[in-house]
Design a protein around this nucleic acid. Structure first.
Lengths: 229, 229
DNA sequence: GCAAAAGTGTTTTGTCTACACCCATGA
DNA sequence: TCATGGGTGTAGACAAAACACTTTTGC
């Protein structure tokens, strides 16, 4: 962009920070990194970066997430703007927070070593720099909201999953136990899952049927929406 | 803020734009201004301004809203970030959009002349600069969401209002008619309105009782939340 | 006395919740 | 054969939706 009709206005730094959620089968986790620059060098933080002039804010978030995880096509949504004057002691930085949902196994051990990153259970987070703790706590709330009416949660599970895995995910997000029969009925009635022939045999002798989320079925119904919880 | 550890990073312009909603008794409206600078001079736009280094983003939005309306203590909420590279032909400007709910009569004729501003019905908006049309349409959706579970809508009505005015507001926001008896029952059962002795006699011979929203009653109930629609 | 809006209950329908036993299998 | 998780149905409670007539009063 060559022209700048607004030269005399304050120019400031704009950052993106990514709350990356994962699900290990029983608990919801967030991926944090050891910060590699001052201020806060060596402390735990969200993965973040500055928005460049040549990219959109969303593109910046995607780039930052890809840098850490190597992943593309990740479910990501804007959480909001964190714009207090002194939130970052290193300068006047406004941050746009995003939350992303990834399959925990898509993120390899080697990447964790490479980036000094680590999964943390949401109720055992370490001290975080700046307002990153607040970001995570807002993201948790927004996630609850989201998955109650949108099929976003599936992106935290493997492509093929059992109903009990899905229920475990919802229980982790809502931090409460649910009734197996009611949950099963509700989710199947939506008609957005396809039951496979295949069974998952790791966690029981009998084996549990695997399902996949069918996006096309969801799209037929999404106009009127749904409510899981 | 003296220090800037991030000097080498791109610095850019950050703006705020305010979607200001009002309700005239039967229709939801948005307050727009004729833009007084290039690019887009003379075109209709949302009220906006640049974020200064010395203020938070929220403070900037409050300042901008106050500049146009003279009002303080206005209900305002963040809508989201609009960060495409070429959204503003005048430069690389990222905008944080906010939506505000005001009482339409708090905004005087004289201010409208002073600022070249005007109320527009939401389904008869003029052409708007940049992505402001998209901002309004997202704000409309978010407003629906908000008033279904929070008592935000009251800030669009006079302090004293009739149940039919309140219902009219919800009908305008949801763009659908509702049943008077069901609406009345639901809203009264929440216990967040106080019925006054006083009647409003403008719109009928019989006169309709006036109510006020009781914040303290709402706060007692807000933990478990409520659902109007 | 009539036009115009205010105010008020009941029935039906659908949705949500609580709850317990048999099944299939591998060890 | 038994231990383990998988899979399934029903009854009762509650909430939401549909629906129409009487009241008040200024003209």
């Amino acid at each position: 962009m060559a022209i700048d009709l607004y030269k005399k206005e304050d120019h400031l730094l704009l950052a993106v920070d990514c709350i990356i959620f994962g699900f290990d089968g029983s608990r919801l986790k967030a991926l944090l990194v050891k910060r590699n620059l001052e201020p806060g060098l060596g402390k735990w933080s969200l993965m973040g970066g500055f928005v460049k002039k040549t990219e959109s804010v969303k593109e910046a978030a995607t780039r930052v997430l890809n840098l850490l995880t190597g992943l593309t096509d990740v479910y990501m949504e804007e959480l909001g703007c964190f714009g207090n004057v002194n939130r970052d002691p290193g300068g006047r930085v406004v941050s746009i927070a995003f939350f992303a949902l990834i399959k925990i196994n898509d993120y390899s051990e080697s990447l964790m070593k490479e980036h000094n990153s680590k999964w943390f259970e949401l109720d055992h987070l370490p001290a975080l720099i700046f307002d990153h703790g607040e970001m995570i706590s807002q993201a948790k709330e927004k996630l609850k909201d989201k998955v109650s009416t949108h099929p976003a949660g599936f992106t935290l599970l493997p492509r093929k999953f059992t109903l009990q895995q899905l229920q475990g995910l919802y229980e982790a997000i809502y931090e409460k136990e649910m009734d197996k029969r009611n949950f099963t009925r509700r989710i199947l009635e939506l008609g957005i899952l396809k039951k496979l022939e295949e069974k998952e045999k790791e966690s029981s002798r009998k084996g549990a049927f695997l399902f996949v989320f069918e996006k096309t079925r969801y799209e037929k119904l999404s106009k009127k929406g749904f409510r899981i919880i």
